[in-house]
Amino acid sequence: MGKSNSKLKPEVVEELTRKTYFTEKEVQQWYKGFIKDCPSGQLDAAGFQKIYKQFFPFGDPTKFATFVFNVFDENKDGRIEFSEFIQALSVTSRGTLDEKLRWAFKLYDLDNDGYITRNEMLDIVDAIYQMVGNTVELPEEENTPEKRVDRIFAMMDKNADGKLTLQEFQEGSKADPSIVQALSLYDGLV
Rank of each mutant, 00 (worst) to 15 (best):
35 I>L: 03
169 F>T: 03
168 E>A: 08
83 S>G: 05
117 T>P: 02
19 K>I: 05
136 V>D: 03
159 N>Y: 03
106 K>W: 05
4 S>Y: 02
123 D>F: 04
63 K>V: 04
163 K>E: 11
105 F>E: 15
186 Y>S: 10
144 T>R: 01
41 G>W: 07
146 E>T: 00
20 T>R: 00
27 V>E: 01
164 L>M: 08
172 G>A: 00
36 K>S: 10
141 E>Q: 08
89 L>P: 11
101 L>K: 13
35 I>A: 07
68 V>T: 04
134 N>F: 06
3 K>T: 15
77 D>G: 09
22 F>T: 02
86 I>A: 11
164 L>H: 04
84 E>W: 15
59 G>D: 08
154 A>C: 11
145 P>H: 04
33 G>V: 10
173 S>D: 01
153 F>G: 01
11 E>H: 11
31 Y>H: 14
114 G>M: 00
25 K>I: 05
104 A>F: 05
143 N>M: 13
171 E>T: 01
76 K>C: 12
108 Y>L: 02
186 Y>D: 00
7 K>L: 06
10 P>F: 15
188 G>I: 08
103 W>P: 08
19 K>A: 00
62 T>D: 07
178 S>I: 01
61 P>E: 04
112 N>R: 03
106 K>S: 00
81 E>N: 12
178 S>L: 04
132 V>A: 05
92 T>I: 06
176 D>S: 03
121 M>E: 00
38 C>P: 01
151 R>T: 00
24 E>L: 13
26 E>C: 15
170 Q>S: 08
92 T>W: 09
9 K>G: 01
94 R>V: 11
21 Y>K: 08
98 D>H: 10
150 D>R: 09
186 Y>H: 05
131 M>V: 14
159 N>T: 05
182 A>I: 00
158 K>G: 01
25 K>N: 12
114 G>E: 07
92 T>F: 07
134 N>R: 02
31 Y>I: 07
178 S>H: 10
155 M>P: 14
124 I>H: 01
182 A>T: 10
41 G>E: 12
124 I>P: 03
46 A>G: 00
125 V>P: 01
92 T>H: 03
143 N>I: 08
63 K>C: 08
137 E>Q: 00
28 Q>V: 14
15 E>G: 14
86 I>W: 00
148 R>D: 00
42 Q>A: 10
106 K>M: 08
171 E>K: 05
155 M>W: 02
73 D>S: 00
139 P>A: 06
23 T>P: 13
111 D>S: 09
27 V>W: 15
53 K>C: 02
91 V>W: 12
131 M>R: 04
166 L>F: 04
37 D>S: 12
95 G>L: 02
12 V>F: 08
163 K>D: 06
134 N>K: 04
90 S>W: 00
101 L>D: 15
86 I>V: 08
